[in-house]
């Protein structure tokens, strides 16, 4: 008897011959379609249209994911947004390469769907959830946050997302859950940087439970009114605006609740420079970079530096969580 192995490819996924043979043309057309659509979309939205650079020739939306409608929120506003082009071409995302321009180049073929996130550790029961279901968990809103990188630069980004607290509620952690650990995808086939032993892959980040539940902490699924571009962490990434950018784990595939403080990737890499908390703090010096001031991306060649604020300017919302803690020790 011959047992035939069923093909892994479902018939609907097989590319028709004519499309395959014309793939270059197809890609070109798809590219132009995207560009035109994106340019039109940006121009139609007056709040983004002012950012001149953003309409230039860059792949704009993540066509693979459809975002449900989102509402504006009270967060942010007043501050000048970092141009779209800068937000999507200046990224620290070592899975796609260690220089800032590499993620935008090497993530072009990355597939953020299908995507599932597994929930593990100190929970009622382990489960998984698809990105489509995550998008239905809570209404999406736009949050304009400052993002301060530990390297001394910052941006102002209009994220689209929902409070992480909503996802945690759905995950049903038990009473032992004191910390949340986030694991990013490390797929060497899609992410060339993972082949380099620069960091101990996969990328791991973590938050204390109260930090994770803080209303400022969000899971971002989009920016500038559209689905998250691959280089910014598609399909879902963490945004913790009072902490340095390294805390924002991208392309999250696993969320684990733990009793012990998780060891993050950067803590493991250089313990003397990176601590678990990584709160933006101008009073705690870093052995490599100035933390008292920062360069705002997109401000131009002669803009100079601006003062870095305690907790990146979010003291009112988050300061109480660190009352009585020695932040020099707990950096």
């Amino acid at each position: 008897m011959i047992i035939q192995k069923k093909s892994d490819i479902i018939p609907s996924e097989i590319t028709p011959r004519e499309v395959f043979e014309n793939r270059r043309k197809f890609l070109q057309q798809a590219g132009f379609g995207l560009l035109a659509g994106a340019a039109a979309g940006l121009l139609a939205n007056p709040s983004y249209a002012a950012l001149g650079k953003s309409t230039s020739l860059h792949r704009v939306s993540n066509s693979l994911i459809k975002l449900p409608p989102f509402s504006k929120s009270q967060y942010g506003g007043g501050e000048k947004l970092t141009p779209y082009e800068d937000v999507t071409t200046y990224n620290n995302y070592y899975e796609f390469g260690t220089s800032k321009d590499e993620p935008a180049i090497h993530s072009k073929l990355f597939k953020p769907v299908p995507w599932t996130v597994s929930i593990e550790g100190q929970v009622k029961k382990n489960k998984t959830i698809s990105i489509e279901d995550i998008l239905k968990l809570a209404p999406l809103e736009e949050r304009i946050y400052r993002m301060r990188c530990i390297e001394g630069w910052s941006m102002v980004i209009p994220w689209i997302g929902f409070p992480l607290a909503q996802l945690i509620k759905w995950a049903e952690p038990n009473a032992n859950a004191k910390y949340v650990e986030f694991t990013s995808l490390a797929d060497a086939h899609q992410m060339p940087g993972v082949n380099l032993p620069v960091l101990d892959w996969p990328y791991v980040e973590g938050l204390r439970m109260d930090e994770a539940m803080n209303p400022l902490t969000i899971m971002a699924v989009g920016l500038y009114g559209e689905a998250l571009p691959n280089q910014n962490g598609a399909p879902m990434r963490l945004v913790v605006p009072w902490k340095y950018g390294i805390k924002g784990a991208k392309a999250i595939v696993k969320i684990r609740f733990t009793e012990e403080m998780p060891i993050t990737t950067w803590m493991k890499a250089i313990p003397s420079e990176y601590g678990f908390y990584s709160n933006v703090n101008p009073q705690v010096p870093h052995p490599r970079w100035t933390q008292t001031s920062e360069k705002r991306i997109g401000a131009g060649l002669f803009a100079g530096r601006i003062k870095t604020l305690m907790f990146n300017g979010y003291t009112e919302q988050v300061g109480h969580m660190y009352a009585g803690m020695d932040l020099r020790k707990n950096f």
Partner: peptide, 8 residues
């Protein structure tokens, strides 16, 4: 055209 962080 000096990238997003021209000074750097």
């Amino acid at each position: 055209d000096l990238s997003a962080n021209p000074i750097e």
